[in-house]
């Protein structure tokens, strides 16, 4: 039983880590694109902005369970299977990307326009500005956004367990619902709670460190 719990925890960690990674890797550039292309942005492209904005809203309004079933063909295409831990990474990432894009957009908008202007006046290209000013100046808010995203994905991964995703959610459903073994149910729930707390604590700690706009050693 302990062995099964450990295996399920590892599966959850795998799903959450890999899908978080992909969602940030794809969501952050989308967030940057939204900020640059908005009508008041540095590279206004109103049509592109409106299209992206609409697509993101559509994807965000789909319940995860529905999205997951819709994404089955894509999962099969990428991983060769529709269910299982590895296959579930695909819908988790797909669901999180628009969420990340939106949250990164909001965080990047926090950066003072005057500071961006100072970068431009110093002779920076837009691409340089993104890497050297926009993202570094927004970093505390971006870290906060990642924290929220990861916690969100942990929740979704538990739900994914119910339809063949494996991990702690799967464990809770199998033992709690089918076998009626409350100990296993509550243990897996406890592990999920601990995971969320850990992520929240770590994210909060990092963000506070970065926000101290001063004694940060990890900025370069």
């Amino acid at each position: 039983m302990t062995q099964e719990l450990i295996r399920a925890t590892i599966e959850t960690l795998e799903m959450v880590t890999v899908s978080s990674l992909f969602s940030v890797l794809l969501g952050l550039p989308l967030g940057v694109l939204l900020v640059l292309s908005r009508p008041q942005g540095l590279r206004p492209r109103p049509a592109l902005y409106r299209a992206l904005d609409a697509i993101i809203n559509v994807f965000r309004s789909l319940p995860f369970l529905v999205l997951m079933i819709m994404v089955f063909p894509l999962s099969r295409l990428i991983t060769g299977r529709a269910t299982g831990t590895t296959a579930t990474i695909v819908p988790l990432a797909v669901a999180a990307i628009p969420f990340v894009a939106r949250i990164m957009e909001q965080s990047l908008l926090e950066v003072d326009g005057g500071v961006l202007e100072a970068g431009l006046a110093s002779g920076a290209k837009i691409s340089q500005l993104v890497w050297t000013v926009l993202i570094p100046e927004a970093l505390p808010a971006l870290v906060n956004g990642v924290t929220i995203t990861v916690i969100n994905i942990i929740g979704n991964s538990a739900m994914a367990g119910a339809i063949g995703g494996g991990g702690l959610g799967d464990l809770a459903v199998r033992y709690g619902l089918y076998r009626r073994e409350p100990v296993m149910l509550y243990t897996s729930v406890a592990v999920i709670i601990v995971l969320v707390q850990l992520v929240q604590w770590l994210g909060g700690y990092l963000e506070r460190r970065l926000r101290r706009d001063g004694k940060v050693t990890a900025s370069a």
């Binding site: 003072d112 005057g114 500071v115 100072a118 970068g119 006046a121 110093s122 002779g123 050297t132 570094p136």
Partner: peptide, 30 residues
């Protein structure tokens, strides 16, 4: 623009860079 420096009412320094990195910024960008 590199031949024209600019200063602002609200300074517009990069808050997450040190004084040294702020001043070096136009050079690094160039």
């Amino acid at each position: 623009r590199r031949e024209m420096g600019m200063i602002f009412q609200h300074f517009n320094l990069f808050m997450r860079k040190t004084v040294e990195d702020n001043v070096a910024y136009p050079l690094r960008i160039a």
